[in-house]
Amino acid sequence: MPEAGAEVVAAGQVAQTGYAPPPRPRALPHGKWPWLGLAVWGSALSILALFGWLMWDVLVHGLPQLSWTFLTESPQDAGRAGGIGPIIVSTLLILGVCMAASVPLGLGAAVALAEYTAPDRGIGRLLRRLLDVLAAVPSIVFGLFGNALFAIHLGLGFSILSGGLTLACMVLPIFIRTAESAVSAVSGDIRQAAAALALSRWRTLSTLLLPLALPGLMAGFVLGLGRAIAETAALVFTSGYVDRMPGSLLDSGRALSIHIYDLSMNISGGEAMAYASAAVLVLLLLILNAGVLQLARLWQARSLRLA
């Protein structure tokens, strides 16, 4: 009977307004397929346990090694002693170049795909398939591509600029597809209401669509940031191994991920410093994510208030 009543109400709405509300999803009968719930909760708890064990291992072995000296001094004795000050600076510079290049291009491409191309035909469909393929390309391929294009052909050599631009090429497919999904998920009623108020496409996009799509945009940004900050293979061929303080973007610089790999695989007796560097990498990623999300909330609140 409740379902029949809901159908009568929906039919009345269609008759009066011409608008058919979307169908309500039907819940599974209570108690049916109990193994499905157990499988879902078991998978979630297994992933959380694995993540917790990984974080516990890194932080327990790495945090005791941290100090102000470790964070500011240069590496000594092939990284067995000293600190990681120049390496942190190089990592932040590489991330800055990567995000400065990928975010404007990725956001513009995502808006173009979401607002100006059809999702299932023509050039839009082809571009989406190409982006999906690029997102699955191994990082070593991007490293060789970046070495050939940025380091050799453009003459940038092994530099922070080469590494950052190579990471931008890696991040772009993920960011574009995530941002496009976020913009497309905004209700079409918002676009129709803006058109009825004679708002320009730019004002609709900047004051309504992008603020409403911001959670999805931040998800893409965080995914790209996480992939970039932990990348090793692509940076070996582009930014180099040098562990001194970079003087400019054209200097070579060693990222934290490369430093951790070098200490754990190539330097005997470097395990303690590798754990400490890994702890710094995890904390740096958490701080960057928290800062970006806080700035996004402030921008979203301000944009929607002005709208």
Rank of each mutant, 00 (worst) to 15 (best):
L161A: 08
L209G: 05
F175S: 03
I190L: 13
L144H: 01
L209V: 15
T204Y: 06
D243T: 15
L214M: 15
A234R: 02
L256E: 05
L235D: 09
I152C: 05
Q192N: 08
T232Q: 07
L205E: 09
A182R: 02
L154H: 08
S187H: 13
P173G: 10
F221G: 14
G247Q: 14
R227S: 07
F175R: 01
D251C: 01
R191H: 09
L161Y: 00
F145E: 02
L249T: 00
A136Y: 04
A168L: 07
V141Q: 06
A233C: 08
S181M: 06
R203S: 14
I190G: 02
L250T: 00
A151T: 12
L161R: 00
A233L: 15
P138I: 11
I190A: 07
L149Q: 03
I160K: 00
F145R: 01
G253C: 02
D189V: 03
D262Y: 11
V141S: 07
L210D: 09
A228C: 10
A182S: 12
V183Y: 01
L144D: 01
V242G: 06
A233Y: 07
M218W: 06
E231F: 09
L217E: 12
V242C: 07
P246N: 10
I190D: 03
I229F: 09
A213G: 13
I140N: 05
G240A: 10
V236H: 06
L214E: 10
L172I: 13
S200G: 15
A196P: 02
G164A: 03
A182Y: 05
G240L: 07
L208N: 05
A255D: 01
E180K: 04
T166P: 03
L154W: 15
V171Q: 04
S159C: 02
G188C: 03
T207I: 04
L235Q: 08
R244M: 09
L217V: 15
L249K: 00
A233T: 12
A194K: 03
S206N: 11
L199Y: 08
I258L: 15
A233R: 03
P173Q: 07
L210N: 07
M218S: 12
L217P: 10
G224V: 09
P215I: 14
P215T: 12
S162L: 01
A168C: 08
F221H: 04
I140D: 04
A255E: 01
I260N: 03
M245V: 12
A179H: 03
I152G: 03
V137L: 14
G188M: 06
V222H: 04
G155L: 09
A151P: 07
M245A: 10
S239L: 02
L167H: 01
L154N: 07
D243M: 14
V183L: 14
S159H: 02
G226P: 06
L212F: 06
F142R: 01
R254V: 02
L212H: 13
A194Q: 11
L149I: 13
S187C: 09
A151N: 13
A255W: 00
V186G: 05
W202D: 11
L223W: 02
G220R: 03
S257P: 05
V222Q: 06
S181R: 08
H259F: 13
S257D: 06
A185I: 03
G188T: 04
A193I: 08
I174A: 06
R203A: 13
I176Q: 01
L134P: 11
L167Y: 07
A234S: 15
